[in-house]
Design a protein around this nucleic acid. Structure first.
Length: 295
DNA sequence: AAGACGGTCAACCGCTTGTCG
DNA sequence: ACGACAAGCGGTTGACCGTCT
């Protein structure tokens, strides 16, 4: 005997949802929360399969969903994350608040794949397609150019939290993507996030924030203390400052940074307030970062 | 004007994973 | 350890729409 079907296929409606059905589902969930999906349709008065209800809610009706095309920044994130995670759309989606796995998957298949191909990058391996491969239409062989992903630094965060009892602190993750990608600073809400207000380390470890797959890098690992005095920073152009900080990373500050100056500054101030960089003059640094924003 | 075609995306299907008794 | 069930996940489908011929 096989497994029981999740619903009686003869008695459930299929196909596009009507606005009436949407209303019923939304009202029910808003009033009762997300309970057991299997029994939800009956309780909500819907002739739908529970699975269908779950999908409709998660992919379309959820109030926290963003609508519309992915921004350039979100696209970059998707590409970076895809390079690390492959076709694990739900994991990728968990780093882009307001976006669903379905949405990202569709966007990948319809837009990004083409874009990458056009740029001469193989969308599966994220490696450049050689002219030879292009002309001969041969399968692309995985090249060993990928930078190994750094292990999560959860232990350090734990230690840091233990040390400071930093309840309510914002931990910011900076993803250093592989291959051709640029410095990516994640921010909450506006443009996809790896920044999260935490109340406990358990939240950091939470499923929807995958420290396993997106390396958490503590501030001192990103902002390498400069040997010279802080005044030398001020005299440099903002891009050069970053090149000094991140000598081995490509930085592209033409990308859109859509967060507010204050948020950006406070995030960076937090990063720079780390003990390991305590000899830096934070005020000066903040001013430099504000220059970055103007680029 | 109308049919062909291709792109997009919501929805479905079936497999996998997690949880509980 | 095992089976049953619920939920999650990724691949696929098909309806719809715009563009081209």
């Amino acid at each position: 005997m096989g497994r029981q079907p999740c619903c009686d296929k003869n008695e459930v409606k299929k196909g596009p949802w009507s606005s009436e059905e949407d209303k019923k589902l939304t009202n029910f969930i808003l009033n009762n929360g997300q309970c057991c999906w299997r029994s939800l349709p009956k309780l909500a008065g819907l002739l739908r399969c529970g699975k269908s209800c779950r999908l409709r809610w998660t992919n379309y009706l959820r109030p926290d969903l963003k609508r519309g095309l992915l921004s350039e920044y979100e696209e970059k994130m998707v590409i970076d994350l895809h390079a690390q995670l492959g076709n694990r759309w739900s994991k990728i989606a968990s780093h882009l608040p307001g976006r669903t796995d379905n949405e990202i998957k569709n966007h990948w298949n319809t837009h990004i794949k083409k874009k990458l191909k056009k740029m001469g990058i193989d969308p599966t391996t994220h490696n450049p397609v050689t002219s030879d491969q292009l002309t001969k239409n041969q399968p692309i062989i995985q090249q060993e150019t990928q930078i190994p992903i750094e292990e999560p630094i959860v232990e350090k965060i734990k230690a840091k939290q233990e040390e400071n009892k930093n309840i309510g602190t914002t931990i910011t993750t900076i993803i250093m993507p592989q291959s051709q990608t640029n410095l990516s600073l994640q921010e909450n809400e506006n443009i996809g996030t790896c920044t999260k207000n935490i109340n406990s380390i358990d939240e950091v470890m939470d499923d929807d924030f995958c420290t396993n797959e997106v390396p958490l890098i503590s501030p001192n690992e990103i902002l390498v203390p400069h040997e010279s005095t802080t005044s030398s920073f001020s005299s440099q152009s903002s891009i050069n400052i970053l090149e000094d900080f991140l000598p081995n990373w490509q930085c592209d500050f033409n990308m859109e940074i859509s967060w507010a100056d204050d948020d950006f500054r406070s995030t960076l101030d937090y990063l720079l307030n780390d003990d390991d960089v305590s000899d830096m003059n934070n005020t000066t640094i903040s001013q430099d970062w504000s220059q970055v924003l103007e680029v």
